[in-house]
Write a protein that binds this DNA or RNA. Sequence first.
RNA 1: GUGGAUGUAGCUCAACUGGUUAGAGCAUCGGUUUGUGGAACCGAGGGUUGUGGGUUCAAGCCCCAUCAUCCACCCCA
Length: 431
Amino acid sequence: MKNTKLTTAPYKGTRDTYPKDMMIRNYIFDTWSRVAKRFGYEEYDTPLIESAQLYRAKSGEELSNQLYNFTDKGGREISLRPEMTPSLARMVAAKKNELQLPLRWFNIGKFYRYEKPQRGRRREFFQLNIDILGISTIDAELEIIQYVMEVMSEFNAPKDTFELRINNRYLLDYLFTEILELSEELVPQLARAIDNFSKMELSDFKEYLIEIGLDNEQVEKVLDFLSWDLSMLETLKGKSDGADQLLELFEKAKNLDITNIVFSPSIMRGLDYYTGTVIEMFDIGGDKNPRAMFGGGRYDDLLAIFGEEKLPAFGLGWGDIIMTDYLSTYNLLPDTKSNTKVYVTLMNESLLSESAKLTQELRKSDINTLMCLEPIKLNKQLQQSNRKGIRWVIFIGEDEIKQNKVQLKNMNSGESFLITVSESIQKIKEI
RNA sequence: GUGGAUGUAGCUCAACUGGUUAGAGCAUCGGUUUGUGGAACCGAGGGUUGUGGGUUCAAGCCCCAUCAUCCACCCCA
């Protein structure tokens, strides 16, 4: 039998997470989840695999080619989840009468999309989903926006490096039907063009609009629309729900001292289940991270695919990959510190049980403790603990045992103390 | 899915036009230093040059295929 050598490379578009990277991931996840709980949000979860039907339902007949799907042994068409919202809607629809509204839920989980990997985009990634269901007013948006801003602040994000761009689907509807009187088949094409507006040269953009069938007058109207600001929305008061909602949102945001938000008429979002507000967070400190950090919106009609009544809902999905890129771009990733507090030395083989007993005692006191298991040279042991960034080292050798004490050393300051075990525990817990 | 670039040690990169045994820095390990770390010095290990085929007296270098990464499209839930 021929021995074929296996590659050590992980599967295309996936990545191994070594302990150092894991600390970074945990830092991000802990921040997301800690702040979510601070806002009264509860954690939930859904299966990683779902019926492919669930994702097909909202995009009609056409099954997206980014679905990671397969047929199981029973002939069912299955997909790894590419996003959370349909599963969330399913869960809520299934127990709609039992669940107490409003729901404030969040989840951090893995997702899969079959696409070509690039910067900020892989086949396997994590995403935070945070949603509020059962609130139809703009206050739902405001709560989530406050959450987002608090997370950015916890990450120590400089205020001049990010911007939350906000738009409203109803305003876009107003553009399409009232201003442009566009025929229905042109809407999706124009929507896509508007979504790409910021990435395109103005002349290319105009050309493209003509190409898809707009006349010159309509093109000018689109360009005018894309230059709108809040004052322009004032003139539409009472005429467009989208304008009304945006005005209310920005008014209330001002009262809450929320900064770094801007009305941006070109924010579209791809999903067709969005109904009102749509938001996207951008890195505006440079051009290293051109993709949106996260995106979200209102999806009041989604439960209808389960034959249920509508339920107002607003939420967002926040990917780990671009967030990590962003944090590293601005040097915001913390030093990866060891979770281990104490390193217990092993002076020689005959002291194995003494070291082990001491280690047990420390662990009983809930102190994360690592013990050297081989009687290697002491300077090696110190080097090991130093490299791991462990703060305390405890020496336990014949001299110490005779005095019924241990030697506790602070690796940051270099100080060491000849004290009893319980005194050591106290000292370690103090800092 | 389409187009382009790249692939040499764990990492960052050398190696003339195809020509001896593929080198260096960092990292790792060992020693100087057997009960006290970070530094310095000395030394060692580590490679089927992504993989498979082809051309050639000779391939890291040229050709084909394949895989992976990056970039631009497409798409973006």
